[in-house]
Nucleic acid binder design. Structure first.
Lengths: 174, 174
DNA sequence: AGTATGAATGATATACTATATCATACTTTT
DNA sequence: AAAAGTATGATATAGTATATCATTCATACT
């Protein structure tokens, strides 16, 4: 039996997603307030674009998305500036493997995140942020120290295939 | 008592370094031979430049070093091509944290290297390659798998300060 | 209200990193 | 000598990022 509302099957999920975005934006605003900085309209708009995309975006991609949906101009220079601002507050992470930027996934949840790790699909755009255990982090710091260095940023990026792309790649190799 | 040859105190070390470079180049040539590819003069020259520098270099830096010491022109395009060639043979690693390239440090030693990790000083140019234990690597793969991904390249890069720069940074903060 | 201050953005130029593409030259095999 | 595959030349262009100076905006202070 087909629901009368089968066209809207995904609606509840989308509504939920919208709610989460709203909540995250509020949290981000809170972070800015506490830092004594302003969560301006342009910053908010860029932040929202990044949340809605839900995948890492390049600065120029963000500029394009911004300009497509508005009359004001958002030049790439300003995007970089705003991204740097968010990165400095840990609201956004920069991924050096693909030169893209993604919102921190731990803004709306309340647990502090010490060491973000990113799993990047090498084939599609998907990226997932996970947190390593504090034991893992301790071991890592020790390892680095023994080699004559001091770890100043525990962010890690892993070149992966997501399960879907991995399955597809195996099929295409036949 | 000062040695009569105090000006040359570092000579033995340098000679040793020269020997190591020669040996590494021969090994690299062997890798190319076995892969059915050619270790051409240009490739050899770039490889030597990278070994002598002993720090990660950008493609354009390599082109400049090449051109400074020769009359033939080495355009950046060719450098990129040759770097890609070396990377495909695992003779050179690309560091995405600083967009630079460095020779694999395990060419002259004979142990196979599964998972290169790089410790990059955020202040000076120094970078060190270490290898993680196979247990660490297994744990990592499991962690990634549990998150719905398959690890396709275990290379990792850590943003660090070398001990020297770390010490200096603490002094300058006073 | 007026102004001083610092924060944020506008605007422009430029540097740096990387790939695409088509043509030419060089090696090796047959 | 020709063919095939490998390597390089040459040029254009895409993509990523920073420097710098000018201007606008928000806030707090007088």
């Amino acid at each position: 039996m087909v629901s009368r509302f089968h066209c809207f099957d995904s609606l509840p999920e989308k509504v939920c997603q919208q709610e989460k975005i709203k909540k995250t934006i509020l949290k981000a605003k809170g972070v800015c307030d506490r830092a004594g900085t302003r969560f301006t309209k342009k910053r908010a708009r860029i932040f929202k674009i990044m949340l809605q995309a839900d995948i890492p975006l390049s600065a120029y991609e963000i500029a394009n998305l911004y300009n497509q949906s508005s009359n004001e101009k958002m030049p790439p220079m300003s995007v970089y500036r705003i991204l740097q601002f968010f990165v400095s507050l840990n609201l956004v992470h920069k991924l050096s493997l693909n030169n893209k930027y993604v919102t921190c996934s731990h803004i709306s949840c309340d647990h502090t995140h010490e060491a973000p790790q990113f799993l990047l699909c090498n084939n599609c755009a998907i990226a997932t942020e996970i947190s390593m255990s504090s034991k893992f982090l301790r071991d890592l710091k020790k390892l680095v120290k023994n080699a004559g260095f001091a770890l100043i940023n525990p962010q890690l990026e892993f070149q992966c295939l997501c399960d879907t792309c991995y399955a597809n790649s195996k099929i295409s190799l036949r």
